[in-house]
Amino acid sequence: MRLHKIDRDVGLFVITLLLLGGVALKFPDFITPRSLADLLDDTAILVLLALGQMLVLLTRAVDLSVAANLALTGMLVALLNQAHPGWGVLPVVILSPLIGALLGAFNGVLVWKLKIPSIVVTLGTLSVYRGAVYVASGGAWVNSNQMSESFLGFIRTQMLGLTVLSWLAVVGVILFALALRLSVTGRNFYAAGGNPGAATYAGIDVGWMQFLAFTASGAIAGLAGYLWVSRFAVAYTDVAQGFELQVIAACVIGGVSISGGVGTVAGVVLGALFLGIIKNALPLVGVSPFWQMAISGLVITIAVILNARGDHSSPRRILEEARP
């Protein structure tokens, strides 16, 4: 089983390399260090969000509200920065994950304490958070000239050839890999989703693990809110609309099982990079931007078919219920 999972990651790695190589064959500039650093910078937010989503998926739940959370937190910190440009970027970097964690914890409480299925909860909060962006901003945009220099500059600062944004993703990946492999809490996420009944008998509170997963996913989405708004230098109501599906797609391509308990950090990172490479390569190859959505849809569909082979849990639910 374990070997099989590692094989899967290696397979995805090879496919990703082939994709990269295929593009590079025609456009050698695509794999210069500069261009690869840009690719990482461009995919960093997706990588971070996919890590948070993976935690939630591991516990047999799903978080559809991440993009709305991102938009709301991004708008709130942009407004804060606009009102107090002198405060610098530090309060924003501290506040954005906190606000996001609060929004995520709200999802978590509803799933944990009221036992409402996570699809229903996050479908609801997705609408509420998105609407709240409009209420907070009055429908107005926060543009780059209303953002302070440090707010915009922080994530673009170069360190050892990579931007701070890219480093955040790298650090996030390392932290997740270590925590999920070595810490008891990390293993408990797998146990809670892999077999909720057994987990409960082993003394793991499955609902609490779901709450933690939603809070973590929310915190990441909040931080990603600042990152997104700063990177694209604009905050408005429709920021990252529909991005939650790309995040889930990255997880699914990376081999995270929607029925819980299965998934690796390496797989998720590769899944996100895979989508990122396609997104960046298509305009280069001369494909009209209008084709992008169809092609990523096709890739996602093929990936899920390949993933599903051998994963025959027939009496499944839409989402497996993580109740002992």
């Binding site: 799903v62 929607i258 959505m293 899920v304 839409i318």
Partner: peptide, 12 residues
């Protein structure tokens, strides 16, 4: 799984 399949075809 239906939720995964239709997330894919939705984009498609």
């Amino acid at each position: 799984p239906a939720i995964v399949a239709t997330i894919g075809t939705m984009s498609l």
